[in-house]
Design a protein around this nucleic acid. Structure first.
Ligand SMILES: Nc1ccn([C@H]2C[C@H](O)[C@@H](COP(=O)(O)OP(=O)(O)OP(=O)(O)O)O2)c(=O)n1
Ligand SMILES: [Mg+2]
Ligand SMILES: [Mg+2]
Ligand SMILES: [Mg+2]
Length: 1156
DNA sequence: ATCCTCCCCTAC
DNA sequence: TAAGGTAGGGGAGGAT
């Protein structure tokens, strides 16, 4: 009995088409909108939030003047120093010292380090004067952690940094606005975050929007929400005022009745000292610092004095309260919607969304088959260890501590609650390691075929493709250990038994929504299918044997099979492509003869025999003239057989379209509507067939299926280069506990970063996938499933054109994208991060623990990195997008070398990857230049290496860059037909000396990211001023000169139409780069004063203007100089840049950014 | 035409 | 009680 081949997994039927979240259509005003959008995008992407003129304009003008004139007003500087954060202050002084000792020429790094240390010791003394009570630390400073100590000491010492430890999120419109608040915070040691993170200690709002209020009301341990006047008053008082009196009215009651005073300050205390990269661990303190619980109705008192005399109470008390909390949690598990209902009804109705459906919806969440956790905050007095919604890292210890005590064995519960992303900090980790789909999904690329040279068919040879597929793979592997069950119906599920465990009771499995990954052929007779719920399977077959997963076993057997197949591939000079853990294509070429068919049949059988002998599992082998037919052959005769397709026509005429590769549930339906069900139906269309299929399926798919119907398939048997890498989780995603979206995002980012390191890639494009529960969606049928959802996705480029696998960068991108999607946290049912535009990069040791991301510092301290041939195959420093790193012979690149060639200064690695067809469209002189360059480069690096596929793909990915480069090339070649009559305002010589990035910007007239100043027009006065720190003014020693900014866009499409957005355009080159270059032309880098001025300038750009992108461009410009300036280390600047970027973006750069 | 983004679909 | 991932192909529609 031959069963008809089928793909057996039941399809999840998505009845509704997910609507697009964004309507990106533009009307008449498309250009303007486009610009506005682009500007906004760039502004966000590059973090170019140029500080508006601060409210304290007096002070700033003073600062400005000082900066411009570089007068040495000691008093002024001292004042300024006070306002800076400790680290900046250190850097500032370091920079000055460094400048004064600059006579030593470009020291190596160690020398610089020593230098820094000795300097720091000097400064310690200074600080001790200021700190009074902090003296012990000075003795403890060892060279190893001197810097950390220094920072710590420094931070603690600064009285003016009264906001230290305060991290604020501004909610909605405030007065003063978020930017002003940010400036105030920064000035006094605090920080502002744009989205929910664990760092946030306070929320600032004038009032809570209904939506936020709603969310907020559900928090059992809310972050305090204060009026912005709290910040203002603190600044006025020059100290941190207790925020109690500033709590907004919507939440005042909750704080009065619920929290403890100490709780209110705890997070501040914890955040202290550990700011800004100082690796001071926190968390333990929170475990042993319980709170004095404030009783209901107790008034808030001014706790300023207690703030510093915060005491640590005995451990016993701590435990007691923890257990208290634990039982509170447990209690909740059994509470049903009643709690929520009561709680919500108890709230002011004004806090609810106006829309009735919203309200119903909120309550409905309880109907998910997880009992959601709600505690009436007015009743429960527990220490505030968890800040709902925002993950509080400090709570980690406590939660897991409880888990260890009370429920470690209970894999389903944590702390008495069902494990979800929100309740279990390690949820993702355990999820990924237990997920079969994650296992099979990542298998192919994870166990990458060692790509050998592709063998080719010779004349007089017949191509055969063998498709090898293991029979009921997971089941077969499991059955190795249970020969007794061979002839019984068997399924594989998490609920099953494995050697050493006992069989679970039957009642439980009857309704199980655990999926059966697969089942043996005996079980299939009962109608059991892959992916079916265990409960269903059990109903179909009560005597079902359920076995557990054995991922290691799959790896093992898979490897054994692969070994056999590789051997065969070598033997016949064929090609092998692993398709999945249980499946592969083997292409071989046999001399054309009458026996070739017989021969290949023998090979197929011998492979099957070998596989069974080695693994104890059976395989099916199908043979055809191409992949498509081979697979059909396998499907036709499964299991445990082999089959050679002689006559494709005979094979195909029996088949339904659904049986074809690429036609699944949806397309089958679609074709059905057109009365197309079988291959025969397509054939019957005759000449119409192709057109009809294309009409129904689209040009690509239609053509493909048409060819399939004719038995044609030209896909090569070849392992494909990976294009994306990612991790997602759409299971157990409920933010019903202490861990919020940010925690999940971090988990995903870490997972992706780990995988990237494992396979040795970096990427420059980050996508976020999101599942959003549909309004009114019924509870998911599957336990902890996602149910009916909208699927959303958005992507962004990694800032600064860098490639990365830094989990912090991924996290940051992810949060940004999430932000853009505007999805209510509680509606999220799944998330994933996918990185694309990949580049091979084995720079880092693949040790998952010690991630050492090279930073910008590494490059600048070593500006003339050469990427050279490397015998060992290591690719030190070859981690650049355009570097062909996977071959043996790279001798190009020197990324930042000064231009060596006058005619065409485009870096070869980039150029070589252009599509020649596109190069050919160029005007003749330019084309010649480029082609000769490409040619030379190709010769040099022997581009024949097929393994270098990823680089050629970069060409496609870089098409935008390429277009821009073409423009630059045209400029350089003076080609007017392309150029038009635009004047760059730069001479050719000047142009040549600029970093490629800037050259491109100038040539393309798109240097907008630099110097863009979005602003609100209603803020008038100072905004007509351009970039405040212009080197031009410095160089010519004049006061700032105003210049007219070009207004290129009006009308923001922001939420508030009454706030038009004006964008001013200016040339960063003209205003900053050029003057700096001239200044450097006129002054030697040996001139201490000149150096100091440059340093000062950079300090302004980085620390005060926070214009990181500009700083990078400036540095790159300097690196391209041909004089001694290019070798000047600028270590302090780089430190400052990195730490400032770390603050602003949450991460700093690696040196990929210096590619150009 | 050819790209890019944001999807949908398929296969394992 | 459960672990609904991963990656590629390709279409629609807008931008260039
Ligand atoms: N929905 C699915 C499909 C497959 N798999 C896993 C289990 C299978 O054992 C393995 C291989 O998939 P196959 O499609 O090759 O299925 P089997 O090998 O199990 O059965 P067959 O004999 O049909 O090949 O992938 C899974 O977990 N869930
Ligand atoms: Mg199989
Ligand atoms: Mg298979
Ligand atoms: Mg199919």
């Amino acid at each position: 009995m031959v069963k008809p081949p089928k793909t057996m997994q039941p399809e999840a039927i998505n009845l509704e088409k997910a609507g697009r979240s964004q309507n990106a259509s533009f009307g008449e005003d498309s250009f303007r909108n486009y610009m506005a959008r682009k500007i906004d995008m760039q502004r966000q992407q590059f973090g170019l939030i140029l500080p508006p003129p601060p409210p304290e304009s007096q002070e700033l003008k003073k600062g400005l003047k000082r900066r411009v004139s570089f007068s040495v007003d000691v008093k002024d500087k001292k004042e300024k120093k006070r306002k800076k954060s400790g680290i900046q202050s250190v850097l500032k002084r370091l920079q000055r010292r460094h400048g004064s000792r600059r006579k030593r020429k470009r020291a190596d790094i160690t020398e610089d380090d020593q230098h820094d240390n000795s300097f720091l010791e000097d400064d310690v003394e200074e600080f001790i004067d200021e700190t009074a009570a902090k003296s012990p630390a000075s003795d403890e400073i060892e060279s190893s952690d001197c810097e950390t100590q220094m920072h710590k000491l420094n931070i603690e010492a600064r009285k003016d940094l009264f906001f230290r430890g305060i991290v604020v999120m501004v909610n909605g419109y405030t007065d003063p606005d978020a930017e002003s608040i940010q400036r105030m915070l920064h000035k006094h040691g605090g920080d502002l975050e744009k989205y929910e993170t664990s760092r946030i200690t306070h929320i600032i709002a004038e009032r809570l929007s209904t939506a936020k209020a709603n969310i907020y009301k559900k928090q059992r341990k809310p972050t305090p929400v204060c009026y912005p006047t709290w910040i203002v008053d603190c600044v006025k008082a020059q100290s941190l005022l207790p925020y109690g009196p500033y709590l907004i009215k919507e939440v005042r009651e909750q704080f009065a009745t619920n929290g403890s005073i100490a709780d209110l300050f705890r997070r501040v205390e914890e955040n202290k000292v550990s700011r800004d990269g100082c690796s001071v661990q926190r968390g333990d303190s929170s475990l042993s610092s319980p709170s004095s619980v404030v009783k209901k109705g107790e008034l808030l008192v001014d706790e300023t004095s207690q703030y510093h005399s915060f005491t640590v109470s005995p451990v016993g008390e701590s435990l007691e309260t923890l257990q208290h909390e634990s039982s509170a949690y447990r209690e909740d598990v059994f509470s049903q919607s009643q709690d929520t209902y009561t709680l919500m009804n108890g709230l002011d109705s004004a806090d609810f969304p106006v829309d009735e459906s919203d309200r119903v919806d909120s309550s409905l969440k309880v109907t998910d088959n997880v009992t959601e956790f709600r505690v009436d905050q007015r009743i429960v007095d527990v220490p505030r260890v968890i800040n709902e919604g925002l993950s509080n890292e400090n709570s980690h210890d406590i939660v897991s501590g409880i888990a260890a005590n009370s429920s470690k064995k209970d894999s389903k519960h944590i702390n008495g609650r069902i494990r979800t992303v929100g309740t279990d900090p390690d949820f993702l980790e355990s999820f990924f390691s237990a997920s079969r789909l994650s296992f099979i999904g990542s298998f192919k690329q994870r166990v990458r075929n060692t790509s050998t040279l592709q063998n080719e068919k010779k004349v007089n040879q017949q191509r055969y493709v063998l498709h090898i597929d293991m029979d009921c793979f997971f089941a077969a592997v499991a059955l190795r250990n249970y020969p007794a069950y061979q002839d019984k119906p068997v399924v594989i599920s998490h609920f099953g038994i494995s050697p050493g465990t006992n069989e679970p009771v039957d009642e439980v499995t009857a309704t199980s929504t655990s999926e059966c990954a697969t089942c043996n052929y005996h079980a299939r007779k009962f109608g059991i299918k892959k992916g079916m719920y265990l409960g269903q399977a059990k109903q179909l077959c009560p005597d079902l044997v359920v076995l557990k997963y054995d991922f290691e076993g799959y790896e093992e057997v898979s490897q054994q099979v692969t070994d056999i197949l590789e051997e065969q591939a070598d033997l016949y000079f064929g090609n092998l492509e692993q398709v999945s853990c249980d499946e592969a294509f083997l292409e071989i070429f046999l001399e054309v003869s009458d026996e070739s068919r017989q021969k290949v049949a023998v090979i197929a059988e011998s492979i099957r025999t070998s596989i069974f002998d080695v693994t104890g599992c059976t395989a099916t082998v199908g043979v055809g003239y191409n992949k498509f037919l081979a697979k059909l052959a396998t499907d036709k005769v499964k299991p445990n057989r082999s089959f050679v397709v002689d006559n494709p026509h005979d094979l195909l005429k029996e088949l339904k379209l659904r049986d074809l590769h690429g036609i699944g549930y949806k397309l089958e339906r679609k074709l059905e509507e057109e009365q197309l069900v079988t291959v025969q139906d397509v054939w019957d269309l005759g000449k119409e067939a192709e057109g009809e299929l294309i009409r129904v399926l689209g040009p690509g798919m239609g053509k493909k299926i048409w060819l399939f119907c004719k038995g044609i398939d030209d896909r090569p048997v070849q392992p494909a280069e990976r294009k994306t890498i990612g991790a997602e989780c759409n299971y157990g995603v409920r933010f019903n506990g202490p861990y919020g979206v940010d925690h999940m995002m971090k988990g995903l980012a870490k997972e992706v970063a780990r995988r990237m390191a494992h396979v040795g890639v970096k990427g420059s494009k980050v996508s976020l996938k999101l599942k959003q529960r549909k309004q009114g969606a019924p509870p998911p049928p599957k336990f902890l499933g996602h149910g009916s959802c909208h699927n959303l996705s958005r992507c962004c480029e990694v800032p600064f054109d860098a490639v990365t696998r830094d989990s912090e960068v991924l996290f940051h991108c992810g949060m940004k994208l999430l932000d853009e999607m505007c999805v209510n946290r509680d509606d999220i049912r799944g998330m994933g991060i996918i990185v694309s535009k990949l580049v091979r990069d084995n720079t880092e040791v693949i040790d998952l623990r010690t991630r050492i991301e090279p930073s910008i510092l590494d490059y600048f301290k070593n500006p003339h990195i050469e990427v050279s041939a490397n015998d060992t195959g290591e690719r030190e420093a070859a981690n650049l997008r355009n570097s062909p790193t996977s071959s043996e012979d790279i001798s190009v690149v020197a990324v930042h070398h000064p231009p060596t060639d006058a005619d065409c200064d485009i870096d070869i690695p980039s150029l070589s990857q252009l599509h020649l067809s596109q190069v050919n469209q160029l005007p003749s002189p330019m084309r010649q230049t480029i082609l000769s360059k490409v040619d030379a480069a190709n010769k040099e690096r022997k581009i024949t290496d097929e393994r270098n596929a990823i680089s050629s793909r970069d060409a496609r990915l870089l098409q935008t860059d390429m277009r821009r480069m073409m423009k630059l090339a045209a400029v350089k070649s003076g080609d007017q037909s392309i150029l038009g009559s635009s004047d760059l305002g730069v001479s050719m010589t000047q142009l040549e000396s600029l970093p490629l990035e800037l050259q491109l910007q100038l040539a393309n007239g798109d240097d907008r990211p630099i110097g863009l100043v979005p602003r609100k027009t209603r803020n008038t006065s100072d905004l007509s001023r351009p970039v405040r720190s212009k080197f031009g003014a410095l160089a010519s020693d004049q006061s700032i000169t105003e210049f007219d900014a070009e207004v290129i866009a009006v009308d923001s499409d922001s939420d508030d139409p009454s706030v038009p957005l004006t964008v001013r355009r200016q040339s960063f080159y003209q205003e900053n780069v050029k003057p700096l270059m001239i200044f450097m032309d006129e002054n030697s880098s040996n001139n201490e004063e000149a150096v100091n001025q440059v340093l000062e300038f950079f300090h302004v750009v980085i620390a005060e203007e926070e214009r990181h992108q500009e700083a990078v461009v400036l540095l790159r410009s300097i690196r391209r100089r041909k004089d001694s300036w290019s070798a000047y280390p600028f270590n302090q600047i780089l430190d400052e840049l990195n730490s400032s970027m770390k603050r602003t973006f949450g991460y700093s750069l690696d040196r990929q950014m210096l590619e150009y």
